[in-house]
Design a protein around this nucleic acid. Structure first.
Lengths: 199, 199
DNA sequence: GTTATATTGTACCAGTCGGTATTAAATGTA
DNA sequence: TACATTTAATACCGACTGGTACAATATAAC
């Protein structure tokens, strides 16, 4: 067994509670005190568990990706038809970004728009840019599959189309932060799907 | 004449120099000290001229709108064909967001994604949301004109289409902040124009 | 029981935050 | 010249920032 006084809180649960604060306020906007309060833990305990604010943010970002990114990615593979898969994925994104149970918008989008500030460490900046590009890659994979299965003309440039949808997702994150309604953003998705060429 | 010691700096010029700092770092991320340094003015002088950080940001936001928003709006009216007008507008947005002479992305987009933080005053939050919606309204006006001129089917829902393009613009702002290249974003615009129904 | 180890909360560190009191300097008016 | 008025820069305010030293406490090993 490990010697010493046992930790009185669940570090994983604390991370879950820290996540929405970073989500809502970004890296800079979230103070360590606010994070500790949200976690229900004293500040030194949070530091003992995660090192510093930078590492805590990276852990929260990873958690965000494996939890919410994953469940949205599932929408991409659930549907057998490529077009319907992308549409359901975008609907899932809209639902997530406007879910009142969470902060509005997207942790990655919010983080990316503030990552040029000198207070943001390089590691955070690169992790956010990587996460943003990962969304385009997931989309590109699904589009390539749709192309292979004959649901998308062979002439369509997959990377451009994937970046297009990914850009739209980022825009949805901004709009959700700005208070756009779920119905409004569903309408945006319906319009955006109009680029899908007829079979 | 006005009595008292004359001001030694141009308040308008100072605002021009302050603007890029807010643009890059957002409301929270930009410290008053950094703003004063950028303006080439002492901190109390900046306060004397603009009151406080909140008022300074609102002034910078207004300047941003009347300068950059205007010139992009011109692209919407320059072209007589509605479809081409929107395309040129989106190209102008991409060029602006990736112009190395300015910070990457958009002041309004960056501001909107961080406006939920408790450190952001309500006035700033509402001004940003208003500015975001103003983009959609400009687009809606142009689309309505295109519809009247027979370049867009009467069945097309103008508000949804305007919100779609505005959401894309917001997404372009995020992507530009994330380091996307101008060519990549032009490709996004080309893809996005694919929703325009055949005449 | 004693010792070594690890976590706890309090209280604090230097530095920065937004904002301002204060005093010296520069002007127009008299 | 003397005075009223306005701006200038320095130096400071309390509050908060990210981060930590420290003493008390709780456990496992001996």
């Amino acid at each position: 067994m490990v010697r010493g006084r046992p930790r009185e809180f669940d570090a994983e649960l604390a991370l879950d509670r820290v996540l929405p604060v970073f989500w809502r306020d970004g890296f800079e906007g979230a103070s360590v005190q606010a994070l500790a309060d949200a976690a229900g833990v004293s500040k030194p305990s949070l530091y003992a568990a995660y090192g510093n604010k930078e590492a805590l943010y990276l852990a929260a970002l990873a958690r965000y990706g494996e939890r919410y990114g994953q469940e949205r990615g599932d929408a991409l593979t659930a549907e057998s038809d490529g077009r319907e898969a992308v549409r359901q994925f975008l609907y899932a994104v809209v639902d997530a970004y406007t879910d009142p149970a969470h902060p509005a918008g997207c942790l990655v989008v919010t983080g990316t728009t503030t990552c040029d500030s000198p207070a943001v460490p390089d590691s955070v900046r690169t992790a956010l840019c990587t996460a943003l590009r990962a969304g385009a890659e997931r989309l590109a994979c699904r589009l390539a599959r749709a192309q292979q299965e004959g649901q998308l003309a062979a002439t369509v440039a997959i990377p451009a189309m994937a970046t297009y949808f990914n850009t739209l997702v980022a825009g949805l994150g901004v709009q959700a932060k700005g208070g756009a309604s779920r119905d409004e953003l569903r309408g945006v998705v319906d319009a955006a799907m109009g680029i899908w060429p007829a079979a």
